[in-house]
Design a protein around this nucleic acid. Structure first.
Length: 275
DNA sequence: GTCGATGTTATCAA
DNA sequence: TTTGATAACATCGA
């Protein structure tokens, strides 16, 4: 579900709400969500205060006093909700942070693929989940971006979604970025020309910024910290628009499979690569 | 009722 | 080096 823009919106929502809040206790209803020892998490967090909230790729990093950080990955259907402690317990709520203020920070996850883990704040850079990530799509410069993609011979769409290459793009924003740059998702990255790669850099950053400005995309599951849904799905040009007219040439959008993922494109604007 | 799909990622075989 | 399949899980729509 959540890609870079959605995670960014969650991070901003959390930042506004939880900083300075103290954890009274943590209840874990589904152990599999917590990596490492669940008891460890429930044991170390009470009494600590949230200090800062950051994002790296699709990972959420929450700093606490005393040198600990909580890493959270939402994967497909994870949600972090800021609620009154009296709010009715929603289905698929797996972890609850009970705060001294009487509020709850609740982790919900229908498909249970997401996870959280405690780590030492001063060694985050060495954490395996962080160390292997590629550069941030909104921070990388155009020339670095072009050189980065050029160096690989893979199909460009799976390459864009490879978190070790670029950290934060997922299925929606890969499709949307490629459409705007008019690049076929099956094209080998090393064979895409400089003009198109430059265009892709611009398109990618524009799409991500617009999506963040729209509070993300909600296809079915995504919710902000307040339970609010995103709006960027109303601006999709190809994603989830199979058979609808291409906004540029009016040809119907098609859906194919690339790297095992549903992939949307305009067959006229994004020309099929030779062989 | 069954099948295939879903915004993620880790792992394995070819 | 790169790919495709598979798996984790619940739900929805055809």
């Amino acid at each position: 579900m959540p890609e870079l823009p959605e995670v960014e919106c969650v991070v901003r929502g959390l930042r506004r709400r939880i900083i300075g809040q103290t954890i009274e206790r943590v209840t874990i209803h589904l152990d599999r969500i917590v990596r490492g020892s669940p008891l460890d998490l429930a044991g170390h967090l009470p009494g600590r205060t949230f200090r800062d909230v950051r994002r790296r790729g699709k990972l959420i990093l929450i700093g606490l006093n005393g040198g600990l950080s909580l890493l959270i990955h939402l994967r497909m259907t994870g949600q972090l909700l800021w609620l009154d402690s009296q709010a009715p317990l929603e289905k698929h709520t797996h972890v609850i942070f009970h705060l001294a203020s009487g509020r709850h920070l609740r982790y919900r996850d229908q498909r249970q693929f997401g996870w959280m883990q405690l780590a030492e704040s001063d060694r985050l850079d060495e954490h395996p989940q962080i160390a292997r990530l590629g550069p941030e799509p909104l921070e990388i410069g155009r020339d670095d971006f072009v050189h980065l993609l050029r160096a690989h011979r893979r199909q460009i769409k799976p390459l864009l979604m490879d978190q070790a290459v670029l950290a934060g793009l997922g299925n929606i924003y890969a499709d949307e970025s490629l459409f705007r740059a008019r690049i076929h998702p099956l094209q080998r990255a090393s064979r895409v020309g400089t003009v198109k790669l430059n265009r892709l850099h611009t398109a990618m950053q524009e799409v991500l910024r617009q999506a963040i400005g729209c509070s993300g995309s909600t296809v079915s599951q995504f919710r902000g910290t307040n339970g609010e849904i995103g709006q960027f799905q109303n601006h999709f040009r190809v994603y989830d628009r199979k058979d609808k007219p291409c906004p540029r040439c009016r040809r119907p959008i098609i859906k194919i499979r690339v790297g095992g993922r549903g992939t949307h494109l305009c067959p006229r604007c994004q020309r099929v690569p030779k062989s």
